[in-house]
Structures are given as structure tokens and as C-alpha cells.
């Protein structure tokens, strides 16, 4: 990893952040959608929700918070990955790829930029945990932030690998919606894993998004869940490996 490679990586990551700030509609869309989801679902199911035994959440709004944080990170990380397609169409990606900068600086900056933006944006919603009475504490908040960062890295890596192969934004959206929405719905974000029926529970068990969500639930409850954390870190590592193997090598 050369100094010039690191410099290119830092500069290109900064570019991702600047681009995000200069697109107000992107900020509104990625922050507004989960908040709206939270308000609507939280209010709609408020009367019919019974928290699972031993769960820290006493209301549906509190139970839904980790799921809202997760979906916020997923949306933002995916939009960050889509910008790879924009860069390709605009010609910017080509100018990066024919430069002597290492290939990892190109995909790494996309991954880092998308993950940082997604995590920072979700962090804005994190104080709601205290308002909703979740006993997270300082360590719990830090743990939640780390779990969100892992979700961001995993999803951004998956998105970048797909964006490298797909040439149209529409095609990308189609595939990601098909993949990400079921992953989120079956992650224990909307309804608890414990209450699911047999086959659905099995599907939720193998869903890679379930474990970061469980790590979030645990962190916001002030509990450490080693299995969920192990799987969460694995999810992030898989995202990095996927992006590296797809973009790192020549097409």
C-alpha cells in the first residue's frame, strides 16, 4: 500500500463526501424514507404489538428503532454504490482506471465514502434510543454505531460488486430491491425472530442481515451478543471481499 495510493484513496473518499453534501435531495430521500417508515409502522402497529419476553423495548416504536437504523444505512449505502454507475456514464471512472492510482483506491474510496455517510446519517437517529427508554448506555451506543458501520460496509460492498457488473441504474435498483427489501423484512427488524413461524424462522436464521440487526437490538438493550457480533463482522468482511474481488481484478 503506497503513500501515493493512500493519498489517492483519501482524496477520492473526500470527493464522495463532497458529492453527498452537494445533493440535498439525496440527503432528504435517504433520511426521510426511514423516518417516515418508522412513524407509519410505529403508529400503525402500536396497539397490536406485544414485545417478546425479555426484550428491552416496551413499545413498537422502540422495537422498530434498530430496524429503522438498519434500513437507513442500507438505503444510503446502496445509493453510494449506485454512484459507481454514474461515474462510469460520466467518464470519471474511466479517467480513474487509466491513471496509475491502484485499483483498490478506486473501489476502497467508494466503499469508505458510502459507509461513512450511511453510518453518520444513521447516527443522527441514534439519540432516539434514549428518548424511547432503551437502556443502551454509552457502550451500547458505540456498539450500535459499530454494528451500523458493519451493515454499511457489507451492503456497500455488495452494491459496488453489483454496480460494477450492471450498466443501468434502473437494472441496479431492480436487483437491489429484489434482494435488499426481503433481507430487511426478514431480519427481525419489523417483527421479532422469536415470534416467526417455523419455515420463516429458518429463512430469517440464514439471512445475513438478521445478525447485524440482532447485534443492534442487543447493543441498544445494553447487552453483548457474541454470536450476532461474529456474524456481523463476517457480513462486513464479506462485503469488502466481494468488492475487492469484483473490482480489484480486471474485467
Amino acid at each position: 500500500m503506497s503513500a501515493s495510493g493512500i493519498h489517492a484513496f483519501v482524496r477520492l473518499t473526500a470527493r464522495e463526501l463532497v458529492r453527498f453534501v452537494r445533493q440535498p435531495s439525496r440527503i432528504v430521500a435517504t433520511l426521510g424514507t426511514p423516518v417516515l417508515l418508522w412513524l407509519l409502522l410505529g403508529s400503525g402497529f402500536a396497539g397490536s404489538f406485544a414485545p417478546p419476553s425479555g426484550h428491552a423495548a416496551t413499545t413498537y416504536a422502540a422495537f422498530l428503532l434498530p430496524g429503522v437504523l438498519t434500513v437507513s444505512v442500507m438505503f444510503t449505502a446502496i445509493l453510494g454504490a449506485i454512484s459507481l454507475i454514474d461515474d462510469r456514464h460520466a467518464g470519471f471512472l474511466q479517467s480513474v482506471l487509466v491513471s496509475p492510482a491502484p485499483r483498490w483506491a478506486a473501489w476502497g474510496s467508494k466503499l469508505a465514502g458510502a459507509s461513512a455517510i450511511a453510518t453518520a446519517q444513521a447516527a443522527l437517529l441514534l439519540p432516539a434510543a434514549a428518548i424511547l427508554g432503551l437502556p443502551a448506555g454509552t457502550l451500547g451506543h458505540l456498539g450500535a454505531l459499530a454494528a451500523l458501520a458493519c451493515v454499511a460496509v457489507g451492503v456497500a460492498g455488495l452494491g459496488l460488486a453489483l454496480a460494477w457488473r450492471v450498466d443501468s441504474v434502473q437494472g441496479f435498483h431492480g436487483v437491489m430491491n429484489l434482494l435488499l427489501m426481503p433481507m430487511w423484512l426478514l431480519s427481525g427488524s419489523v417483527f421479532p425472530l422469536e415470534g416467526a413461524s417455523g419455515w420463516l424462522r429458518a429463512v430469517m436464521f440464514v439471512n445475513p442481515m438478521t445478525w447485524p440487526t440482532q447485534a443492534l437490538h442487543a447493543s441498544l438493550a445494553g447487552v453483548f451478543d457474541p454470536i450476532a457480533w461474529g456474524a456481523t463482522i463476517l457480513f462486513a468482511a464479506a462485503g469488502v471481499a466481494l468488492a475487492a474481488s469484483t473490482i480489484g481484478s480486471r474485467r
Partner: peptide, 30 residues
């Protein structure tokens, strides 16, 4: 090598200076 493709290799959301700084970093200039 310097390359000008049919589509300009510039980021439309960045200023000219920011684009040139990004380009400089790609070629090890800082």
C-alpha cells in the same frame, strides 16, 4: 499517459479545482 475521452472525465458536482486536485492525487502529486 494523458487521456481525454469522449465524455469529459470530470465530476460535474465538483469545482474545477477539486477535480484537478483529485486528478493530481491519482498521479501521486500532492
Amino acid at each position: 499517459l494523458g487521456v481525454v475521452f469522449q465524455s469529459p472525465g470530470l465530476d460535474r458536482l465538483l469545482t474545477i479545482r477539486e477535480n484537478l486536485l483529485a486528478q493530481a492525487s491519482l498521479f501521486g502529486l500532492s
